[in-house]
Amino acid sequence: MAEINQTNVERALGGCRWVQHILTYDNVNSTMDVAREAATSGAPEATVVMAACQSRGRGRLARSWSSPEGSLSLSILLYPSEDKLQSLTMMAGLAVARAISDAALIQVDLKWPNDLLIRGRKVGGILVESGYVEGRQFAVIGIGINVNLDAMKFAEIADIATSLSVESGAEVDVLKLLRGIIVEAEALYVNFNSQGIYNEWRQRLVTLGCRVTAVTGKAIIEGLAEDVKMDGSLIIRSDDGRSHNIIAGDVMLRHVS
């Protein structure tokens, strides 16, 4: 397995003109925190932060995300326009799914709003955070993927989690995967096409057509996941016939209809 260090990451991303700055660490609390700090220091767009391990990685709703050695922990700092900001989670999901398909020859599905699944089991996740620095809007895309982790890591949660190496039966080149993600993200971001991004993202969503239980705030909504809107919100038709527009929350799949 290629060592994740500054030299190897720079070599892997060589020729990627989009990347303006690279920060690589053996271990950090969170690559997202480093990227946010970089924004406050005036770091350029397409600053990439990568770590071999994270001690305090996080997912949505302030949950922790385990990032041991053998996983990919990556954050990308951007300064998006408002229309691009709305599509960042979709863009990141597509970039990662495409890159995994190329690097590991595995089909990846997306579960609303930000989970990466292989055969129904979680292999990674995406988190987008945004803010302002001196009146300028920035966003950080955080990406966490279980790459080269053996089955023992998932012995207790094998029904819900997996890794690329477990699914492919071989070690995956994490630096090739990194480059693939950056190349795909650049293509989607620079050649921005909101309708095209939405269409492909929607097609990859395994959530649609499933009965789901959505937890949003204090509300629990059960019903059929009917569709998603251009802004990424999920439309659920509850059993009483009402339509619910879910902007944020947890969604559990019950079964495919």
Rank of each mutant, 00 (worst) to 15 (best):
E134K: 15
K176F: 01
A151G: 08
T216L: 05
L72K: 01
D26W: 07
I22V: 15
T213F: 05
G42M: 11
M50V: 15
Q6T: 10
L224G: 02
G59E: 06
H21P: 03
Q137F: 09
S64W: 01
V48I: 15
H255Y: 14
L178H: 02
G15D: 00
D240R: 06
G144A: 11
V206N: 12
W201C: 05
H21R: 14
N5I: 06
I76D: 00
E156H: 11
R211A: 07
H255A: 04
A12W: 04
G169V: 01
P80L: 06
R63M: 00
F138L: 09
I76P: 00
V133C: 11
S81L: 09
T47Q: 05
E226K: 12
I157W: 13
V212K: 13
Q137H: 13
L78P: 02
E167F: 08
W18H: 13
V133W: 14
L74E: 00
N148R: 04
S30F: 09
L77K: 02
I106N: 05
G223V: 04
M91D: 04
T40A: 10
L74S: 00
L234R: 12
I247L: 14
R202G: 07
E10R: 15
L78I: 01
V174G: 00
D115P: 07
Y189S: 03
T40Q: 12
V166R: 06
K218F: 09
R242G: 09
I220V: 15
N146C: 13
L149K: 01
L253V: 09
R204K: 14
V108H: 05
G180N: 03
R17T: 11
S30V: 04
L23C: 11
A158V: 04
Q86L: 11
I220M: 14
M90A: 14
L208D: 02
A52P: 02
F138Y: 15
I76S: 01
L116R: 11
L78F: 09
T40G: 15
I160W: 03
L116I: 08
V9S: 11
K218A: 10
W18C: 14
S165A: 08
S71H: 05
R60L: 03
I247M: 11
L175D: 02
S165W: 00
S165L: 03
V172Y: 05
L178R: 01
A52F: 00
R211P: 00
V9P: 07
I141H: 06
L77I: 03
S130R: 14
N27S: 14
G241P: 06
M32P: 07
G196M: 10
L77N: 04
I247S: 13
V108R: 10
H255C: 03
S30I: 00
S81M: 08
N193G: 05
I22A: 12
L94Q: 05
